[in-house]
Design a protein around this nucleic acid. Structure first.
Lengths: 115, 115
DNA sequence: CAGAATCCAAAATGATACTG
DNA sequence: CAGTATCATTTTGGATTCTG
């Protein structure tokens, strides 16, 4: 019978924590994902609005990160069949569920960086 | 007189959040940093113990990430002037301050990954 | 307008052999 | 034991040009 604090169960707990961490970071850890997520907090935005709203992103990266967020279910993409084309992005409920976590990370970072 | 919810103040708030995020991720976002931090939660460890405790790290990466954590003040490194050499790593108070954040990230990730 | 495609640079990570 | 040094590879980000 194994003790509750045996090396094995410590490792199992840690493994579980680490899997969660690495999954979470793969979802929200991209270079521009937090920017996108924060920007969409205001409400749905067009592609061009996101570009203006996030100074410094290249088109390539903005699209890439949006596609990943979409694939992970945080962001919903709506294409309007018009000419010229219009595409809007919005947070899903799942996307909104990241906000407490995002805020906690931001708060820790803001509190502890120097300058 | 500027309205409280003007575009500018929204951007300032967001900018502040983003600075915090990016700083926090630069501190805890490395490939092995969470593993190290979680491992040291048990108490101080020798270099060789960390290696055993973190399957898959290369020596190069373990040292590199430990040095970064040390530079950022999360981890304290103690060298014992013995032969053979002995070096121990431990969390600082600042390092321990990451734990609520780390747990929240882990919890979100564990809750929302499939399978 | 909203991107796709292509090419390239830089950073992060890894494998492995060697050393005080 | 606790690293360092070196080289290879993978991942990530960016600039630019083109298109339905």
């Amino acid at each position: 019978m194994r003790k509750a604090n045996s090396t094995n169960s410590i490792n199992e707990t840690r493994l579980h924590l680490l899997c969660g961490m690495s999954h979470a970071l793969s979802v929200i850890g991209g270079r521009w994902k937090a920017s996108i997520l924060f920007s969409l907090t205001d409400g749905r935005k067009r592609y061009s609005e996101l570009r203006k709203d996030i100074p410094g992103v290249s088109e390539r990266m903005l699209v890439a990160q949006l596609r990943e967020l979409e694939a992970d279910g945080l962001v919903e993409r709506t294409v309007f069949p018009e000419v010229p084309p219009r595409v809007e992005y919005a947070l899903t409920d799942f996307g909104r569920s990241t906000q407490p976590m995002l805020r906690e990370i931001s708060a820790w970072g803001a509190k502890h960086r120097k300058g």
